[in-house]
Amino acid sequence: MNIHVTDVDPRNTAHLLQWNSTLRDGYAVGRQKVWSRSDAATRLQFQNPHPTRRSVLLLAEIDGVPVGAAEAHVHPGEPADVEIAVLDAFRRSGVARTLLHAVRDALRDTATLMRTETYSDVGVAFARSEGLWVGVRESRQVIDLPLSEDAFDGLPGAPSDVEVLSWVGGCPDELLEGWARLRTHMSHDVPMGDLTRTTLPADVAAVRRNEERMSEQGYALVRSVARLDGEAVGYTEILLSRPDPTIVLQDDTFVEERVRGRGIGRALKIANLRRLASVPESAGSLFLQTSTELTNEPMLALNSSIGFEEADVLTVLEGPLG
């Protein structure tokens, strides 16, 4: 069986969308309520490449038929993030190993470490056979949308001395510095298990650059921040793809350690879910997805209190790229 791997040129739209479809279908095998990147979002992301990130897109074929795909991204000095998916009918045929070796060849001079993620025991065993180790495990949780108007009845609101502000889009100028500061704290604080901790810049300029790119790719940024005595102490963010709003992503939620345990995280999430309903495209959303490290019991309990339920468990592995 001859497995042929080709580089995907994002400028070739037909090839790019064929790659995305293969990756999406392979990633969803045996799973329910799986987020996937729409064709429109794929074009927007890869035909306007990130200025400092290197990306590798690979398509595997057997006799001209797509059987698997790989996606890898690396920032200078960071581990490479690698995703590999194989269509169900072609698993255990060497496709994943062929793709992984092709990724390693492509990025050998760019990074020394790689990370990958899987939702299956078979995937974990495969990654371990290639020299990777388990770094962290996360619960992927979902909640159906739309939420009823009384979904949060009976849940406590924000503490009386805490102000929660919500909006859609770029961060208001008067909140920008606090938002950037909290994002930096989040990168230092988020549970990483045995993964290498890396921190990308989250200064004001970096926040604005990220907002611009996300807007160009069609994402609505639904955000809330909590303030105590005028100072930002927590934030949360939801990402909704306007081209394909079916599945909405709950991104970061962070509360400074000194004010944890007061219900600020819950108040932030509830405020943001209510703000989500104000986005017109959310009328087409079916569920919201979030991921939480399995040992982060306070966040797991918070999500459960709001109505999230576990869909499956994600394992993130790390190891040498070479």
Rank of each mutant, 00 (worst) to 15 (best):
V222P: 00
R223A: 15
R223E: 15
R223P: 05
S224M: 13
V225I: 15
R227W: 13
L228W: 08
L228N: 05
D229A: 15
V233P: 04
G234R: 00
Y235C: 11
Y235H: 11
L239P: 02
L239E: 15
L239W: 14
L239F: 11
L240W: 05
L240E: 04
L240G: 01
R242L: 14
R242P: 01
P243A: 11
P243T: 08
P243W: 07
P243L: 06
D244I: 07
D244E: 14
D244F: 09
D244P: 06
P245H: 11
T246Q: 12
I247M: 10
V248A: 04
V248M: 03
Q250H: 11
D252P: 07
D252M: 13
T253F: 08
T253Q: 08
F254I: 13
E256V: 15
E256Q: 15
V259W: 10
R260N: 07
R260G: 06
G261K: 09
G261N: 10
G263V: 07
G265D: 02
G265K: 00
R266H: 12
A267G: 09
A267T: 07
L268G: 02
L268D: 01
L268F: 10
K269A: 06
I270A: 01
I270R: 02
I270E: 01
I270T: 05
N272W: 05
L273N: 02
